[in-house]
Design a protein around this nucleic acid. Sequence first.
DNA 1: ATGGCTGCTTTGAGCAGA
Length: 258
Amino acid sequence: MKLATWNVNSLKMRLPRVLDWLAQHAPDVLCLQETKLEDPGFPTLELDAAGYSAHFTGQKTYNGVALLARKALPAATDVTRGLPGFADDQRRVIAASYGDLRVVNFYVPNGQSVESDKYRYKLEWCRAATSFLRAELAAHPRLAVVGDFNIAPEDRDVHDPVAWAGQVLCSDAERQVFRDWGALGLADSFRLFDQPPATFSWWDYRMLGFPKNHGLRIDHILLSAPLAASCTSCTIDRNARKGEKPSDHAPVIAEFEA
DNA sequence: ATGGCTGCTTTGAGCAGA
């Protein structure tokens, strides 16, 4: 079983790459963020032709998340959108069950800067997400929480920790949220394995960010204990960041026994 | 080789991303 997450920065622009990537990697589930599509414009037919069933919640210009699942999987059940008790026009959360596998797909707010109202919104959003995840864990033993978290959990996830110290994506409050989710019983699958240093999932389009590997690891796959026990690898596909018209994020992939 | 932002929007300068 293979589970992946990818912030595509506009599914309209990235659909050819997504279809190529699905054909090459054949994940069982691929979670997308920043689709930037209203639901009637979602490319359901193209993905169906590629062998994937889609569930999604989107809006124009910003945000938007989707779950793509190979049709061989059990049909999605218990599909939920948004965070309970957190009224929000921004489409950032979708979750579904495939048999006993539960997948939560997050596009965590960016926050812009620690002085910004958007940062306060980010922390409030994360507080609601913590409550949601506690309930999801209680209901679903085999839980994966994936997506663009917009949090670099530790200094080793940052190309220049001194420059980023205390900045948005790296602030103490954001890193505490990541630890809180870990304390609920969600393991960072990437850190279950030895990894090359300076492995990142996002690189700024500007200033030769990718060629210089000036990146951050902000896209994650968290696993409940039963899922973590069967996880055999977690990798970031930096090849997907190369070439013409890449997203600024690379996919994260977790593989499991059976 | 992977190369000095990109995608979006009441179409075009400005916002947002991270």
